[in-house]
Structures are given as C-alpha cells and as structure tokens.
Design a protein around this nucleic acid. Structure first.
Lengths: 222, 222
DNA sequence: AACAATAATGAAAAATTATTCATTTTTTAA
DNA sequence: TTAAAAAATGAATAATTTTTCATTATTGTT
C-alpha cells in the first residue's frame, strides 16, 4: 500500500512512516500542502493522511482543494483539536474520516482499512489507460467518448480488468464470464475478444488485450 | 427518516429524540438490547444509534449480534470512553461509525448523513416484496429463484424502485429510462411494463405496478 | 522451410430484445 | 349507460446480440 503522509511534525510523521514500513507498506512524507499537491500529480496513493494544522495551508483547505479537483483517493484527517465543529467541518470538506490525536498506529490501520473497505465496495468504475469502465452504465468512457458495450463484451472486459496483468485462459473465461464449461468446438470467446478489441483499440495504436499463444490472454491497462 | 435510539440514559435519549422530531424525523427509544433486537424484527430503521454501555448487553455485543444476523442498517455507536482500543473494537464489531460523548446534535446529524451517503453509493441491491433487484447481476432474486431481465426491463424496474410510492408518468419514464422525449405515437413504455409485470407477477397475486389512469404508474413494494 | 496447432476474422445463422401496430379492455366522466 | 380517452395485449417487424461456421493468419516446433 502507498501512503502519503502530509504532516509537519517530524516526530509524528517519522513514527507513522516507520510503522507503515514495518507493516510492509510504503509511506512518503511531505511537510506542506504545496508538496502534497505536486506529488499526487505523479504518484497514485492508496490513502492520504493529512494533518489538520499545517504551515501555509490548513489540512482542511488542502482536503477541499484536492477533493474539489476530483481526487478519488481517500483522505483521513489527523487532528489534535477535539472540538465538535471541527469534526463536522472535516466530513463536510470531503474527508473520508478523521483521527484525533493522540492515536495509536493500530487505530490508524483500523481506520484506513475501514475506509478502504468502503471504497472497495462502492467502486463504480474501473480505470484503464485513458479509459474507464463505468460499472453502473456499463459503458466505456474516455475523454468525451462513450463506447456502448454489449452484455458479453461488458462481462468480458470487467473480468479482464479485475484480473489485469495475469494470464486468463479460454477455459477460465468460459467458466467465469459465460458460466459454462469450455467446449473446444466453439470459438465464441475468440469472437467476443475480437469485437471487444475492435471497440477499444480502433483509433489507438495501443493493444490492451495481448494473446499468449497456447495459454490465453493478458490485459494490460498501461 | 426512522431512527432507533438504544440508550438507557433518559436525558441523552430524550434530548436526541426531541431533536430528531424537530428535524422532521421519527425516533424510537429502547433502553436495552433485548428490546432493540425485538423491534428491528418489525420495523425497518434507516439508522441505529447504540450506546456503548448498557444493561444486560453492551452496545458492542449487541452490534456484533445484529450485524452477525445480517442486519444491513447502519449502526453508530455512542461512547463516553475515549480509550483508543474501543474505537478500534467498535469498527471491528461492524459498527459503521462512532461518536464520542459529549456530542452536539449537529455532529450526530453530520455523522448519520455521512454514513447514509456511504450506504447509498455502495448499495448493490434494491429489495422489494419477497424479491431483490441485484444491481450488479441485473437480475431479480427471490428465494432460490433468479429472473433474468432485459436491459430495458432492468432500467425500468430500477427506476420504479428508486421512486417507489410516488407516481411516475409515461413522459418521465421516456425521459429518465429511455433518455428520449416522449412521443405519444409510440407505446413501448406500456409494452415494457406489460413484460415486466409478467416476469414479476406470475405465480403471485401481488401487483407491484399499479396504474393511475391518466397520470402514470406507482410501484408498491409492500 | 514445412507442418501442426492455435488464434483471428468475416460473414451467416440463431436467438434475443426493442419497437411498432392493430385490436381489445378498462376507466372516467358526461 | 354510453362514449371517449387511456391502457393492456398479442403478434408482427426491426434491431441487436450471440453463436456458429468456414476460411485465413499466426505461432511454435521439427
């Protein structure tokens, strides 16, 4: 997991980072809002821990700014203040949760997991390349384009996206996408892949679905 | 909104209830876990506020018990204790959030709204009668039955369920479900309603979709 | 390079879904 | 009670999707 820690108190930030590394995660520390805004442009974090009180820009302002710009990454505010109005403000600013200092690392992890669980279950789109598969509308969305998918094309693409980067065999696709045992006499899997490729790859010179001869297919989002 | 308050301190419970009524909601107070378990069998609440410390059963035990039994209603724990381990425990017990005493009613409302917002966006099925519309699989599920719906039938049923109890006109359906302006020459809305009715109401003597002559249709989940 | 196995493709057939149409039934109001 | 409006229905047609099929292209192996 990639964690961004936006915190100017070295002691707290350093302790958090050490704990994250021990737990097998990555953590990057920045000490002000400007730095935070610039790093989220380059790196996609899984969660952002944001100090309420910070130089130049408060955590709240930063939170509003990032969420306002369409950032989907969950943000957890760290606050030393226990006044009620702040909690309300935090949620209204688009924060996904907040933790009051002092806190244990155990609590931080529990909060992060709770927030991520929420996100997981409420995911409504799967991004890939310059596209995104809208799971509600069942269409592929790009910059101002909408590609309609048939039912089987949608099921197939969703399966590819949930298994991106790993080989999926034709048998697997028959079972998981078509819910039937694979019959080597038929080739509807190949046909549907052909049609999906046509819809996704026309105009682009990208190849999302790579064939592994004799084994299956791999989906590359790149 | 229907709120269940499980709290043995009369002062707090009474004040909460008064505030909810002022805000235009309904609130029911029970003072122990047994009573809570029995009322949730009969009434479907929108949110449950649960005191941490209670006679017979702690709020935590009750929370675990209710969520373990498959209750989907969001639960917010009220706790006077500020020890860190409790917060973690609360989330692990399946609570959706917690509020530490003392709290303002403003905070309670903000928390409830945040929790409901989460639920709204992560809802994956819309229940009605003895059925449930699975928004992921796009099928109607009942006890061991699965009814496949065509795309238009699904869109129509989802729209009805999201507007249950209120009249929806044919014009409205054209615009919202078919995304086209209504043309009085055509009657595909009626035809699709007929087909949906056939799929839902065969075998049952229930009527989910009621016609309001000259106005439109109402969906009753009962 | 040649062969066999595997995959891709275009087009046709089959199946499903969406819409139209003509007719019957129901509802409301005179 | 009856006439007009609105809705329901069965069946036909149109459009789309799914699957099959025959053929061509590609890949890996000898």
């Amino acid at each position: 997991m990639e964690v961004l820690i936006v915190e100017d108190e070295c002691a707290i930030a350093g302790s958090l980072k050490k704990n994250f590394l021990n737990a097998g995660h990555h953590a990057i520390i920045v000490t002000d809002g400007e730095a935070a805004l610039s790093t989220i442009k380059n790196i996609q974090y899984d969660v952002i821990l944001l100090d309420w009180k910070m130089p130049k820009m408060t955590g709240l302002q930063l939170c509003k700014k990032m969420k306002g710009a369409g950032l989907k990454t969950p943000i957890i505010l760290l606050t030393a203040l226990s006044e009620i109005s702040n909690k309300v403000e935090a949620l209204n600013a688009g924060a996904d949760d907040y933790i009051t200092k002092p806190f244990s690392f155990e609590e931080v992890l529990a909060r992060i997991n709770a927030v991520l669980r929420r996100y997981q279950s409420s995911v409504s789109a799967l991004p890939f390349g310059d596209y995104s598969l809208d799971l509600i509308e069942r269409t592929v969305i790009s910059t101002e384009d909408k590609i309609r998918l048939s039912e089987k094309e949608f099921d197939l693409l969703r399966y590819f996206l949930l298994n991106r980067g790993s080989i999926v065999s034709k048998e697997q696709l028959c079972e998981k996408v078509w819910n039937i045992a694979c019959n080597p006499e038929t080739n509807f899997v190949e046909v549907t892949i052909k049609n999906l490729r046509k819809k996704l790859e026309t105009g682009l010179n990208k190849k999302f679905i790579r064939t592994i001869y004799g084994e299956g297919y791999i989906f590359f989002a790149d």
